[in-house]
Design a protein around this nucleic acid. Sequence first.
DNA 1: TTTGACTCTGTGGTGCACCCTATCCTTTAA
DNA 2: TTAAAGGATAGGGTGCACCACAGAGTCAAA
Lengths: 114, 114
Amino acid sequence: MYKISEFSELTGLSKETLRYYEQQQLLEAAFVDDSNNYRYYDDGSYFLAILLQKLRSFGCTIQEMKDVMRDESFTNLEVLLHQKKERQNMEITQKQQTIHEIEEFIRTGQEGET
Amino acid sequence: MYKISEFSELTGLSKETLRYYEQQQLLEAAFVDDSNNYRYYDDGSYFLAILLQKLRSFGCTIQEMKDVMRDESFTNLEVLLHQKKERQNMEITQKQQTIHEIEEFIRTGQEGET
DNA sequence: TTTGACTCTGTGGTGCACCCTATCCTTTAA
DNA sequence: TTAAAGGATAGGGTGCACCACAGAGTCAAA
C-alpha cells in the first residue's frame, strides 16, 4: 500500500492529478483511512494508473477514459484505441496539407512582398 | 470602406475576433469615425486580415503574428513560416510514434486482458 | 419618424486538464 | 516532545483564442 506521494512518484501522475482523477471517478484509492482520509493505493491501482497515463498519451480525453473505466470488461478499450489511431492518422494528413499550404504560400507569397 | 459586419463576412473573421485583434494591436481598422467609434476597413485591411487568417491556420500564435506585423518589411515572416513547417513535421513524427505505441499496446495488451 | 438593424464598450464566460495556495490536521523521525 | 514532513479539503488560477451578453448609442430604409 502506497501513500499518495509515493504512488505519485511510482506512476508519474502528480498528486493533484490523482486527486482530480478520483474526483472524476476515474481512479480511486484502493483504501481510504476513515480517521484521516489518507488515500492508499495498491498494485491494482498501479495497473490502472499506468493504463490511464498511456491512454492520455494516446490523446484520449478524461471523458473517454471514464467510458473505458466504467465497463470492467474493457470492451470499449479496443474500439477507443482504434479510434485514436484513426484520429492520429487524420491529424497527420491535415498537417501534411498544412505543410503544402505553407510551401505554396512561401512560393506565391514572394510576389506580394518587396 | 467596409463596416465591421461586412468586413467580417468578407474575411471570415468574426466581429469579435476583429475587435480582439485590434485590442492586440494585430490589425486596426483603416479609419475610425470619431463621432461614433465605428470601425471602417479597406482593402489594405483585407490583405492583412487574410494574411492573419492564413498564419493562424498554419499554427501561428497571436504573439508570433504580432512579431510579424510589428516589422513592416515582413522579414520575420519567412523565418516564422519555416519554423511552422518544421513544427508540423515534428508533430507528424510524434503522431507516427504515438500510432506505433497504440499498435504495440493493442498487441501486448491482449495478454493482460481476459 | 419610427423601427429594426447595426455598432460601441466593458465585462465575464468557455473548454480542457490540470496546478497552486491557504489552512488545517496527522504522521513520523530525532 | 517537538518540529518537519506529509496528508486533507476547498476554492481559485492557468493558457489560449476567442465568444457571449448587457446596455447604450447610431444608422438607414420605409
